[in-house]
Write a protein that binds this DNA or RNA. Sequence first.
DNA 1: CCATCACATGAGCAATTGTTCATATATTGA
DNA 2: TCAATATATGAACAATTGCTCATGTGATGG
Lengths: 122, 122
Amino acid sequence: MSEMLEERCEDPCEGTLTNSIELLKSEMIPDSTASGLADIFKALGDPTRVKIIYALAQKELCVHDLTQVLDMGQSAISHQLRYLRNLRIVKRRKEGKTVFYSLDDEHVEQIFHQMLQHVKHA
Amino acid sequence: MSEMLEERCEDPCEGTLTNSIELLKSEMIPDSTASGLADIFKALGDPTRVKIIYALAQKELCVHDLTQVLDMGQSAISHQLRYLRNLRIVKRRKEGKTVFYSLDDEHVEQIFHQMLQHVKHA
DNA sequence: CCATCACATGAGCAATTGTTCATATATTGA
DNA sequence: TCAATATATGAACAATTGCTCATGTGATGG
């Protein structure tokens, strides 16, 4: 019944009907979900990590390869790989001294390419 | 033919065949594209902005509404809306004193929801 | 015109981020 | 065992970020 009660009370600015806002508020995304979502997007929100993911989408590569392809220091690459690995976006495979990295989340990879097309088409 | 030439030359660590790396390097994503891609992902990579986008995906809302739904200060919301507007993720519509915001990029909205499902299903 | 409301914006500040530097760990071959 | 190679990691530091506070702008009604 209270859904029918529209219009302002005493205070100004309802924007939209106040009850509707209460409803929206109750159906809001949980904080933990919002943070989890933000964490993955944040991982994709850096040029270096974008390049790493782009390169790994072509083929599995070791750390040294990535330093060549991105023309960056080994330490910087390693730090970013750890970052991406913590979020299960990339995975490792050891072979003797060298460690090969590859993408570990097909869905994220798919979304990455969708956004890439979107940006290129802009 | 050079694709058949595997194995190391004089210097150590090829990871993968050296020529293959040169090829990859030449087919690498341009810096500007990587930055543009990172910029959009970065915009989605913050819990506050995630919540704003989630709310606006339900319906058009004014700034005051968003402060209620997110339980945050008006200034913080305004700053984030400007951020999102600069990237054309949201758009404005003025009606008297109040300004209504809504999503302005269906593709980004679609990707947002895909990632949301992915995170919830994790 | 003036007060009020809705929103925008600049400055400032603490927190986070991405890189470099130095060093640690691990694997291999002599 | 020792040296070399491949990668990982901690500390440090500059740059960026997201918020708050104070104030500015623009529209409305009295």
